[in-house]
Structure formats: C-alpha cells, structure tokens
C-alpha cells in the first residue's frame, strides 16, 4: 500500500524545554484509518499540529503525498484537513459562511453544490443559516468536520473527535469516518477511547513521551500482544484451588465455581492441554469452557507502563 504521509525523525521542543516529540518516525498508508493512542501529554496533539503546519518543529522532515511540508507547503497543506480537539468556532457567523470561508482559505474557488452536499451528509443542512454560537456541542463538532472537508482533502486529522460527546453522537461520528474511508480519505485520529480505536481503526499507533512505541494492524496487535483468558466453569463449587494446580496460577471467582486461567497467545505452549488433563485427573466435573481476548485497552496500558519503566531505567 502506498504511503501518503511520511514523518521522519521529528523533534519538537517547546520554549520551556519540554521535548514533546522525540525523533519520532511514522508512516501512514493511503486510505487507512489510523488511530493514535497515548496518555495525556504523550505528544498526540503536538504531532498533528506539527504535520498541519500549526506548530514549528526543530528537527526532521514530513512529507504528504511526497510534498515536503516546509518546501512544498502549499501542495502539502492543500491535501490536509484538520478537526481540532476543542470546539473553536467564530460565534457570530453562520454555518454556511464559515464552511465556505474555510474552503476559500485553502485556495479553492467557491463550490456551493459541494458544500451543500457536505452539509447534507453531516446532517447540517437545516442549520446552514444558524449562527455558530446557537449550535449544540455535537453540531459544532460536525461543523468542524465540514470545515475540515470543505476543500476536499486527501488526509484528515481528527484530534479527539468524540471527546465529550454522548454515545449516540460518537457512533454517528464513527459512521461519518467510515464513509470518508469509503471515499479513500486517509484518516488519522487521536483518541482516549480505546473502544473507538477497536471499533474503527485499521492500524493503531501508541505514542508516549514523544515517541511512537508501537505501530501495528489492530487485529495483529490484539493477537500478537494480547493475553487470553480461559474460564473453566465447574459443575460444583470448590472451597479452594487444588494445590496440584498451583503451577497454573489460577484464580477462583467469588461464586467459587469458575477457574480463571490467563495465558499468553504468543507462547508455543499455552498450558491448556496440561491444565485440562490435570483437572480431569483430579476428578473435577466441567460444566462449560470459554475464552476471552484481552482488550486493546489492557495492551495499551501495558505498553505505556513498559515505556515509562524503560524511561525511568534510562
């Protein structure tokens, strides 16, 4: 797959000497949805603002569709749309004027048909003459997306697109994002909601302390790094975990009828066969067996923790 965004060795140091991006490298494929996860202050917004030209950076280079964002800034920036994290909008302008203004900024001649279609797709058409201050938070978020799409960009950055919105609107946003993907728009979103990344992303990147600590296909990531849980439900409750099963580090649920075994999918030997065989030899009767995949959230937290530990050791 063709790479539409190449970020090479980017370093950004703020005036207070805080290193927000530390020789960061990242490539984004054309047409994918890429979710960038990271704790607060990890560098997510700084990275987006740097790529979009809102912030200066100290070292490295960034190319959008092979156009350098410094040397060919006009061509590079005209391919990018950005939806900021905060609901920053002019108060007294109408939706229609404001979205058309954004299109103009990107050097595009007026195209009322396109803007009309865009507003209709985002369920904003009946609000086109409303003043921006009169809109609800959710509607404002849609206006920001309309503004970012007004110049028909190839790459769209969404900085926490569903922050502080209700569940219904969040799901609506996911639909909007999926529709954009169908139109081959490359989407890079930052999020705190792991379920958002699990739901819509093709690939996931994890950033911490200004460095990308992992990038992978979402499915691979869950498969590769995830731990699985095997739940063995017994026909009769037991008082204690038998000492013969000590090596499996089992847990017993509060009803004392389910044995919980956590195993690593990466390992050659998961230990499941031995465990089941030992349970059988102990004469315990099984009622049910189920497995659960660990969530992206637990993977994310583990990686961030590891990265913090590494930094502390360094």
């Amino acid at each position: 797959m063709r790479e539409i965004l190449k970020i090479n060795n980017i370093t950004k140091i703020y005036k207070n000497q805080f290193k927000a991006l530390d020789e960061l490298n990242l490539n984004i494929n054309e047409g994918e949805i890429f979710a960038l996860l990271g704790p607060n202050g990890a560098g997510k917004s700084t990275l987006i603002n740097t790529v979009c030209g809102i912030l200066n950076f100290d070292k490295g280079d960034i190319k959008v569709n092979e156009f350098d964002i410094i040397k060919d800034y006009r061509k590079a920036r005209s391919l990018i749309g950005i939806v900021p994290q905060e609901l920053n909008l002019e108060a007294f302008e109408t939706v229609w004027d404001n979205v058309n203004y954004s299109r103009g900024l990107y050097g595009k001649s007026p195209n009322h048909k396109y803007i009309e279609k865009l507003l209709k797709e985002l369920s904003l058409w009946d609000k086109k003459d409303s003043k921006l201050r009169e809109l609800s938070g959710g509607m404002k978020r849609r206006v920001l997306i309309a503004k970012a799409l007004s110049h028909e960009p190839k790459v769209l950055f969404l900085d926490e697109p569903t922050a502080s919105v209700d569940v219904e609107l969040r799901k609506d946003m996911w639909k909007v994002i999926q529709k954009l993907k169908e139109k081959n728009v490359t989407i890079i979103l930052t999020t705190h909601y792991i379920e958002e990344a699990e739901e819509i992303a093709d690939r996931v990147g994890i950033i911490n302390n200004g460095k990308i600590i992992l990038v992978d296909e979402k499915e691979n990531l869950i498969k590769k790094l995830g731990q699985k849980i095997l739940k063995i439900e017994l026909s009769e409750p037991i008082k204690l975990i038998p000492k013969e099963l000590k090596n499996f580090k089992l847990q017993l649920n509060s009803d004392k009828n389910i044995l919980i075994y956590t195993y690593d999918t990466k390992g050659k030997n998961t230990g499941i066969t031995s465990l089941l065989s030992d349970i059988k030899s102990l004469g315990l009767q099984l009622k049910d067996i189920s497995t659960e995949q660990s969530s992206l959230e637990s993977i994310f937290l583990n990686l961030v923790k590891e990265s913090e530990n590494e930094l502390a050791r360094a």
Binding site: C52, A76, R77, N88, E90, Y106
Partner: peptide
C-alpha cells in the same frame, strides 16, 4: 483568543 487561528495557520497561505 478564540483559537480559530489554527485554520489560518494550517491553510496553504
């Protein structure tokens, strides 16, 4: 002040 300056800075201007 309103933080809408981002779109001017991000535009190819």
């Amino acid at each position: 002040f309103t933080n809408t300056v981002y779109e001017i800075l991000a535009a190819p201007l």
